[in-house]
Amino acid sequence: MFIKQNNNSKGFIQIPILIAIIIGVLIVGTGGYFGIKQYQNYQTQKTEKEKLAQEEEIEQKGKEKQEMEKLKEEIENLKNQKPQIIKEIPSKNSENQKNQQSSNIPSQPSQSVDISSVIDKWKPSVAYIKCDFFNKDETYAFSEAGSGTLFGFSDGVGIQTNKHVISKQLPLTGGLATPDYCTVKFLGNSKLYYVYHHTTSGVFNMQAAGDESDGARLIIRESDNFIANLLLQQGFYCKRKPSLGESIVILGYPSIGSQTDITATEGIISSYEYSVNAGNYYVTSAKVEHGNSGGAAILVKDNCYLGIPTFAQIGEIESLARILDEPGLLK
């Protein structure tokens, strides 16, 4: 009996061990299966990601290649295009800053002024003047020609010119002879404007500077639409003293030039000349011939009326003309 019990106990102990082994095998097998499955999924996902990355890389390289081809094409097109002038358009802020900076500085046109445009601006206002002198017996004596510039004065419309154009010093007596009348003619208008020495009521139409300066003016009493339009397009007096070396242009009708069109000569401001009785003058290298006197001296940089060209001073080498800085009578 005692021996049988021992045999049964040994058999009872082996069964749980067997079950535990089976369960352990199952657990290990199941875990291994899921581990392998998970690893396979990981590998699959990794392969797909690598494939997508390769496709994206190929696609990106294709886009880059297309952009490079397009860029090369644009470069070739630019090479074949003609040169173009590109003008920078300033922004509103830059314009405002520029205006603020220049608010305390007198406005001046650009230094690169086209002289032809300056001439076109002023030549319609420059007139050809011819004054006829008569003897006391009313017989014709002689004529004097010159140039002048149209301006509006406080007492009417008139021509600003030289005194020696509307008066002549008599060789015998030394006195001044004045013309009975002068005719004024403008470009683009065949009409002659007559300026008589005085009106029927005794008002003088020919006014010369009272001092020794060479300034004078003729008052045109028969103003019309043509003159009114000229005044609307009129330029302005220079508001500053020009510096030495600044460019000027002289407009007028010299005796050696054409009387059907304006003659223009260029020069610079060479020096200044001051006189209590004769007025202030700018000395210039620009040529002023007989007949050109009384025309217009224009400061090119500002495109403004500087003064009245007048006679020349003869030097040892060449002549230097003078420009009368408008006396008080003419303002």
Score class of each variant (00 low, 15 high):
Leu324Ile: 02
Ile89Phe: 02
Gln14Lys: 13
Thr200Trp: 13
Ser247His: 13
Gly29Asp: 01
Lys239His: 10
Gln160His: 15
Val195Asn: 01
Val113Gln: 05
Lys70Gly: 15
Lys92Tyr: 08
Tyr39Phe: 07
Thr30Gly: 03
Ile3Trp: 15
Leu18Met: 15
Ala141Gln: 05
Lys136Gln: 07
Gly328Val: 09
Gly188Cys: 03
Asp261Gly: 07
Glu266His: 08
Ser154Ile: 08
Gly146Glu: 02
Gly315Leu: 01
Ala20Thr: 07
Ile298Arg: 07
Leu244Trp: 08
Lys301Gly: 04
Asp325Gln: 08
Gly307Lys: 02
Ile129Gly: 01
Glu246Asn: 03
Lys72Tyr: 09
Gly156Gln: 07
Val28Ser: 11
Gln81Pro: 11
Ile23Arg: 09
Thr161Cys: 03
Met206Gly: 04
Arg240Cys: 14
Ile269Cys: 00
Phe226Tyr: 14
Gly148Leu: 04
Asp302Phe: 01
Thr161Gly: 05
Tyr237Ala: 13
Asn7Phe: 15
Asp137Trp: 07
Gln313Phe: 10
Gln43Met: 07
Phe12Arg: 14
Phe311Glu: 05
Ile19Met: 03
Ala208Trp: 10
Asn7Glu: 13
Arg322Trp: 09
Ile19Lys: 04
Phe34Ser: 09
Ile219Glu: 04
Gly174Ser: 03
Leu52Pro: 14
Asn303Tyr: 08
Lys301Arg: 12
Ser243Gln: 10
Ile86Ser: 06
Ser9Val: 15
Gly210Tyr: 11
Glu316Gly: 06
Ile248Pro: 08
Tyr196Val: 08
Ile227Phe: 00
Phe204Met: 14
Cys182Glu: 01
Ser255Cys: 06
Phe153Gln: 06
Phe2Met: 14
Thr173Val: 00
Ile89Ala: 03
Gly295Leu: 03
Thr139Ile: 03
Glu57Cys: 11
Met206Lys: 09
Glu246Pro: 10
Ile27Thr: 01
Val184Pro: 03
Lys239Asn: 13
Tyr281Asn: 00
Gln169Gly: 03
Tyr39Glu: 13
Asn162Leu: 06
Gln160Asn: 13
Thr265His: 00
Leu192Arg: 09
Gly174Glu: 02
Tyr305Met: 08
Gly279Glu: 00
Gly307Thr: 11
Leu230Gln: 14
Asn205Asp: 07
Pro179Asp: 01
Phe153His: 10
Ile13Leu: 09
Asn93Tyr: 10
Leu329His: 13
Ser110Ala: 05
Lys163Tyr: 02
Phe311Lys: 12
Lys72Asp: 08
Leu306Asp: 00
Gly174Lys: 04
Leu231Gly: 05
Lys168Val: 04
Pro109Val: 01
Ala141Asp: 07
Ser125Glu: 15
Ser154Trp: 07
